[in-house]
Design a protein around this nucleic acid. Structure first.
Length: 795
RNA sequence: GCACGUGUGGCGGAAUUGGUAGACGCACUAGACUUAGGAUCUAGCGGUUAAUUCCAUGGGGGUUCGAGUCCCUUCACGUGCACCA
């Protein structure tokens, strides 16, 4: 039978026997393995998907054999811009395109033999699913967590559309090349910043990889500092700055406001008005990333106004500059040019005063990070950083001009998109009642069928053009009202899909507490490195909110998060059509079989690192599978391990089991290659020897191993148990270790497991080459590391 | 710029976490079998040397009996940075 036939045969077997069905509330211990569901693009499954799905599939198959009730689901994250773009181009409803793409993705996944529980499949675009996404949005709203605010967006005046930062890279529209401007838009926001501290502390309840935790921590960006109030000279107004170093206040020689700061217009003196206006306009053309680029030349203008430094009443000038962001802190800073490189650069540019307040070098000497004691600082002189901060905080609070303040970089979540292909936000605007939530009973609010998907002239979602849909009545007062035409971001549906998998067909709740309590948490969540900051943070925020209103059982619903590297083209670059380096899994499966592709993708390199494609290396994996097949000719009918193979078999079971649960897929494969090579050296192997190899390989290459196992007369591996190993039999009785003299390897000795330290020492000193290198020297000491090495020190 | 990650043979990568650097695989070389080979088998495969001689894990320094692994410093590349998913 050729591999394509036998793969189909087993895929059919698994389907018909529902071999991978997860049973709600079974007596077995639950184990929930989640791999990020894909965006079903027209390009079909990427070999990168194959890598991570195979890895999780292997884990799922292992855990099932270990007696766990495994939940390993798959679905589709199908809302989003690409489908909408495709629809605009081809005048086809995204719904139709998505249906086709899902069909193709699913076909491909089936040919790879992934052990998903297909009974739990859904798409975020299913009304039965997005009904609950909308319902949850209403919960956010009802609990005061959703609100409208005006925020600047990237706007292309030519395409008349809102652009992502990515589409507006370099300040020009990616599609038409027009200069992008910043435009204010009223958007729905979720109060994620309120959860900053909880999202930070919640990490303690998870087992995310350290770098994943760090990503979360950095995104949240907590900093402890102070707010300091500055009066504007000659005005009644004052403004507040945020600083993490209030102890350097005596060194503050000027202030900078963000160009958008609300005070700018009122404090600017008449003779500076024109210049300030011009500068503000220029800033509108830049996005945040460009503004904060440190290596660019600092720019700014003087407002003509002065602030009063609250600790010494000195008049210091107020500038505006785009290196200060309105979105961080208070949108205003006090500048301490002696100890901050950005402030220093700015001060040099405008010839502003520089007063060092920390001993031990100023910024011009490139040594400003040192926390020297305070100088030129009145009551802080002689104090170190911590003492000075505390004393300054006490001073500020006592004089009512500042206070301790914790600041977070993380902002509220902008939840509106001016797009068609997303979940409609179930809110209605009524002239007399304002924003009114839809009645829950009317959910889902369906996306209408329309012919045109282009945005409107003022950048609103195409939904705004569908007056039938937009015009409705106010749920509160019954008068004519209009629906919100913005839709939700793609992140919405993926923020809670893992909960739905626990109870995917529930039409009364998004998921029952009963099911969520049974499955408890996602034990193992795999996804791309690029999602470890945002998607994970959004999902955790969403869950924590649901937890706080009593709808989910745990504050954190994801226990372990791991991430995978990309599969690059053979040219070591990201695969892309334009580079012509794309590998289509269909072609590989057809020519080499799914098992070969699976083994290769596990073997190709460190799972967490990017790895380039190599068809030559893939062929090597095909040879390995062929070797495993050939080994069946050596099988003799005997139901115990060959004595000569017992140790390596026990070692291999242990190693493969460890590797499959610790992201060591490549070394799991190499362990099995070594085992197969060892078998190959024998003239015969027993049935049991062969069976254990097939079982260990099964999670990675499920089809061929089932076939060979069946030929042995055994029942299917997917219904069997994972082999156990005997720790005592994983240790070789004779091993070779190295002997070093003064740190250099000078010989090898054979030792047995019951050699004493003295015996090992004696063997080492008796070794010919060792003796040669010790000649005429005085023995200082001999270090014996059991089972590893002997190190001899001579003088 | 900030954050994170990565640098080991011709290539992908191993290294039990401080203990024989280069497992396993690819590519390559020589040979065997062969009408044939993208098959199989055997041997070799970091550089260097008369030599298990010396040098080698991006570069430089340090700690240690011993460093790819720890510390300091430096260079290069990759990824993310809030409307791509």
């Amino acid at each position: 039978m050729n591999f394509n036939e036998l793969e189909k045969k087993w895929q059919k077997y698994w389907d018909e026997h529902k071999s991978f069905k997860a049973i709600d509330e079974s007596n077995k211990e639950p184990y929930y393995i989640l791999v990020e569901f894909p965006y079903p693009s027209g390009a079909g499954l990427h070999v990168g998907h194959v890598r991570s799905y195979t890895a999780q599939d292997a884990l799922a198959r292992l855990k099932r054999m270990q007696g766990k009730n495994v939940l390993f689901p798959m679905g589709w994250d199908a809302f989003g811009a690409p489908a909408e773009q495709y629809a605009i181009k081809n005048h086809i409803h995204p719904k139709e395109a998505v249906k086709e793409n899902i069909k193709n993705f699913k076909r491909q996944m089936k040919t790879l033999g992934f052990s998903f529980d297909w009974d739990r499949e859904f798409s975020t675009t299913d009304p039965e699913y997005y009904k609950w996404t909308q319902w949850q949005f209403l919960e956010f709203y009802k609990h005061g967590m959703a609100y409208k605010a005006t925020v600047p967006v990237n706007w292309c005046p030519n395409c008349k559309t809102v652009l992502s930062n990515e589409d507006a890279a370099g300040g020009v529209c990616e599609r038409c090349g027009t200069q992008v401007v910043q435009k204010n838009k009223s958007q729905w926001m979720l109060k994620m910043s309120e959860y900053a501290e909880d999202l930070l502390t919640g990490l303690d309840d998870t087992h995310f990889a350290p770098k994943v935790k760090l990503g979360q921590i950095n995104w949240i960006g907590k900093s402890i500092g102070a707010e300091v109030d500055f009066k504007v000279d000659g005005h009644n107004e004052s403004f507040t700055v945020f600083t993490t170093r209030c102890d350097t206040l005596f060194g503050a020689t000027y202030c900078v406001l963000a160009p958008e700061h609300e005070l700018v217009d009122s404090i600017t003196t008449p003779e500076h008005k024109v210049e300030v206006k011009k500068y503000k306009e220029a800033c509108l053309l830049k996005n945040e990333l460009e503004r904060t680029e440190l290596n660019k030349e600092k720019t700014g203008v003087f407002t003509g106004a002065y602030a009063i430094n609250p600790v010494n009443n000195k008049k210091i000038p107020i500038y505006i500059s785009d290196y200060v962001l309105s979105s961080y802190g208070t949108g205003a800073i006090m500048a301490v040019p002696a100890h901050d490189s950005r402030d220093y650069e700015f001060a040099r540019l405008f010839n502003l005063e520089i007063i060092p307040v920390l001993d031990g070098g100023d910024v011009s000497k490139e040594a400003y990070e040192g926390d020297g004691i305070h100088i030129n600082s009145d009551f802080l002189n002689g104090l170190n950083k911590e003492e000075a901060i505390n004393k300054m905080l006490a001073y500020l609070e006592e004089h009512h001009c500042g206070k301790k303040k914790i600041n977070y970089k993380m902002r509220d979540w902008i939840f509106s998109r001016q797009r068609f292909w997303g979940e409609p936000i179930p809110m209605i605007y009524c002239e007399s009642c304002g924003w009114v939530p839809m009645n829950e009973s009317e959910l889902p609010l369906l996306l209408p069928d329309v012919a045109e998907y282009e945005p409107t002239d003022n950048g609103e979602s195409p939904l705004a053009k569908i007056t039938d849909w937009v015009n409705t009545t106010c749920p509160k007062c019954g008068r004519p009202a209009k629906r919100e035409t913005d839709t939700m971001p793609n992140w919405a549906g993926s923020s809670w899909y893992f909960l739905r998998f626990m109870d995917p067909h529930n039409n009364k709740e998004f998921a029952s507490m009963k099911n969520m309590l049974y499955w408890n948490k996602v034990n193992w969540y795999n996804g791309g490195m690029e999602h470890t900051a945002r998607h994970l943070l959004y999902a955790r925020f969403w869950v924590q909110f649901l937890y706080n209103i009593g709808l989910v059982p745990n504050k954190e619903m994801i226990d372990t998060r791991v991430s995978h590297g990309m599969v690059l083209g053979s040219d070591n670059q990201k695969m892309s059509k334009s580079k012509g380096n794309v590998i289509n899994p269909d072609d590989i499966i057809h020519e080499y079989g799914a098992d070969t592709l699976r083994v290769y993708e596990m073997f190709m390199g460190d799972y967490e690192q990017d790895s380039p494609w190599s068809t030559a290396s893939l062929r090597g994996c095909k040879r390995f599978i062929d070797k495993v097949i050939r080994l069946q000719d050596k099988v003799i009918d005997k139901d115990e391990y060959s004595p000569a193979l017992e140790v390596i078999i026990n070692k291999s079971i242990k190693k493969v089991e460890y590797d499959l649960t610790h992201l060591g897929y490549n070394t799991a494969v190499s362990t099995l290659m070594i085992l197969a090579n060892k078998y190959d050296e024998e003239t015969s192997i027993t049935k049991k020897d062969y069976q254990v190899l097939l079982t260990l390989l099964n999670p990675i290459a499920p089809h061929i191993t089932e076939e060979l196992n069946e030929a042995l007369g055994f029942s299917p591996i997917c219904e069997s148990s994972w082999p156990t190993y005997d720790e005592a039999k994983t240790i070789d009785s004779n091993i070779t270790i190295g002997v070093q003299v003064n740190g250099k390897l000078r010989g090898e000795i054979n030792i047995t497991s019951d050699d004493t330290e003295e015996e090992i020492k004696a063997k080492a000193l008796a070794s010919e080459n060792v003796k040669k290198h010790m000649e005429g020297k005085e023995l200082v000491k001999v270090i014996v590391i059991k089972g590893k090495i002997v190190s001899i020190v001579v003088k």
